[in-house]
Amino acid sequence: MPPPTPEPFWTVRVHRIDIHPGLSGLCVGYERGEWRRDQFVNHVMEWLPEFALKESELQGIDSSTLVRMIRNAANIIYQSEKFNNRGEFGELFLHMAKRQVFNSIPAISKIYYKTARNETVKGFDSVHVVEAEDGLELWIGEVKFYKNIKQAVSDVIQELHDHTQTNYLRDEFNLIINKVDKNWQHYEKIRSLMSPNTSLDEVFKRACIPVLLTYESDAVRQCSACDDHYKELLINEMREAYHLFSSKGLPEDIRIHLFLFPLASKTELVTALDGKLRIWQQL
């Protein structure tokens, strides 16, 4: 049996699926006056096996293989001194957000697209499916693990337009379906949806692009507890970020859902994540 899914960690401060784009605002909260950076880092590590390992490897985890599989997952992410420039942590956050908020099912990790150690991966940052009431949906995501929300919005808007061009989508679909395990329970449905014989008009009816943006938050840094004042500041800040994003001329023919993840300090978070990951690599 695969390892159990980690318990939810984020508090979802805002969740709107009745608007376009949709919005979910994620919060890690405080403990004894401090933003819960280290607790969040420990939680992130719990997701490593699911994010980095193949389905067949997850199915094979037991007490005799657990440590080795955790070490393998940590090594798959990256081995580089240039960790401040890496996007893998952001991809992992997006994976976690879709799993926690929408109970998505991973189709394949973009880690599998790497052809050489420490190579960055272009294209969509995450490929999941969601079992909706009217059938299976394809969730192909984008993430910007940034300090500045304006820069994050600017860069992701350009990618959203580039990545929804017909030729680009066809190339991505071909790459994705060739990497999906043919024994996966949803393989045939995804293969049919991504087939070149299926009109993109039909694909867009069954697809969503989740976008996760991080930013260093004044609300997070000014407060030390999840009291009413903090919640008001944070929700107002998220509302402004949402309006900035939604006003930039998004692609109109596909559903988009925005995840906002405010940080106290990106640099400190990345340093803590990198340190913990290197410990796991030595298990």
Rank of each mutant, 00 (worst) to 15 (best):
Lys205Glu: 15
Ser217Thr: 11
Phe204Pro: 00
Asp201Lys: 07
Tyr215Val: 11
Leu234Arg: 03
Ser217Ile: 08
Lys248Arg: 15
Lys266Ala: 06
Arg221Gln: 11
Leu212His: 02
Leu244Met: 07
Arg255Val: 02
Thr267Ile: 12
Glu237Val: 11
Ile235Val: 15
Asp228Asn: 15
Glu202Asn: 12
Ala219Val: 06
Cys208Glu: 02
Leu258Gly: 02
Ala219His: 08
Glu268Asp: 14
Cys223Met: 11
Phe261Pro: 04
Thr267Asn: 14
Ile209Cys: 02
Val203Tyr: 05
Phe261Met: 07
Leu233Val: 05
Leu234Phe: 07
Leu213Ala: 00
Pro196Ile: 01
Leu234Val: 10
Ser199Phe: 02
Pro262Ser: 03
Ile256Val: 13
Phe245Lys: 07
Asp228Ile: 12
Leu258Cys: 02
Leu233Ser: 02
Glu252Cys: 03
Ala241Met: 01
Ala225Pro: 05
Ala264Gln: 14
Leu263Glu: 10
Leu250Gly: 07
Asp228Gln: 12
Arg221Glu: 07
Gly249Glu: 06
Ser199Gln: 09
Leu212Val: 11
Leu269Gly: 09
Arg206Thr: 01
Val203Ala: 07
Asp227Leu: 04
Phe245Asn: 01
Glu202Ser: 13
Ser217Pro: 06
Ser195Glu: 05
Cys208Asn: 04
Pro262Phe: 01
Phe204Glu: 01
Ser265Val: 07
Gly249His: 08
Asp253Phe: 00
Glu202Gly: 03
Gly249Leu: 08
Asp218Cys: 10
Val203His: 08
Thr214Tyr: 00
His257Cys: 07
Ala225Leu: 14
Glu240Leu: 14
Phe261Trp: 04
Leu234Trp: 04
Glu202Cys: 03
Leu258Tyr: 01
Gln222Ile: 09
Ser224Gly: 15
Phe261Asn: 05
Glu237Tyr: 10
Ala264Gly: 12
Ala219Met: 08
Leu269Asn: 09
Phe204Leu: 11
Ser199Arg: 12
Met238Cys: 13
Tyr230Glu: 10
Asp227Lys: 12
Leu233Pro: 06
Ser246Ile: 06
Ile235Leu: 12
